[in-house]
Amino acid sequence: MNSESKYQGSCFCGVVQFTVSGKPEGMGYCHCESCRRWSASPVNAFTLWKPEQVVVLKGADSIGTYNKTPNSYRKWCKNCGGHIFTEHPGMGLIDVFAAVIPDFPYEAGVHVHYQEHRLPIKDGVMKLKDVPLELGGSGEVIQE
Rank of each mutant, 00 (worst) to 15 (best):
M1E: 08
M1P: 10
N2R: 14
S5Y: 01
Y7N: 08
Q8G: 02
G9Q: 00
F12W: 15
C13P: 06
C13Y: 09
C13R: 11
G14F: 07
V15N: 11
T19Q: 09
V20S: 03
G22C: 03
E25D: 07
G26D: 13
C30A: 01
H31W: 03
R37Y: 06
A40H: 01
A40Y: 02
P42S: 11
A45V: 09
A45Q: 15
F46C: 07
T47I: 08
W49L: 00
K50I: 01
P51K: 11
P51V: 09
Q53V: 01
Q53Y: 02
Q53W: 01
V54T: 06
V54A: 06
V55I: 12
V56C: 03
L57A: 04
L57Q: 13
G59V: 03
A60G: 06
A60E: 13
A60Q: 10
D61Q: 08
D61R: 03
D61W: 02
T65R: 13
Y66C: 10
N67K: 13
N67E: 11
K68R: 13
P70V: 06
P70A: 08
N71I: 04
Y73G: 08
Y73K: 14
R74L: 06
W76K: 04
C77G: 00
K78N: 12
N79I: 12
C80K: 13
G82K: 08
F85N: 07
T86E: 12
E87V: 10
H88V: 07
H88F: 09
G90M: 05
G90F: 08
M91W: 14
L93E: 11
L93I: 00
L93S: 03
I94Q: 05
V96F: 01
V96S: 03
V96N: 04
V96P: 04
A98M: 11
A98L: 12
V100S: 14
I101P: 01
I101N: 03
P102C: 08
P102G: 11
D103N: 13
F104T: 01
Y106Q: 02
Y106G: 02
E107G: 12
A108H: 12
G109P: 07
G109W: 04
E116S: 15
R118D: 11
R118L: 13
R118G: 10
L119P: 07
L119H: 13
P120G: 03
I121V: 15
K122Y: 08
K127L: 08
D130I: 01
V131P: 01
L133S: 13
G136C: 07
S138W: 06
E140P: 02
V141M: 10
I142Y: 05
E144K: 02
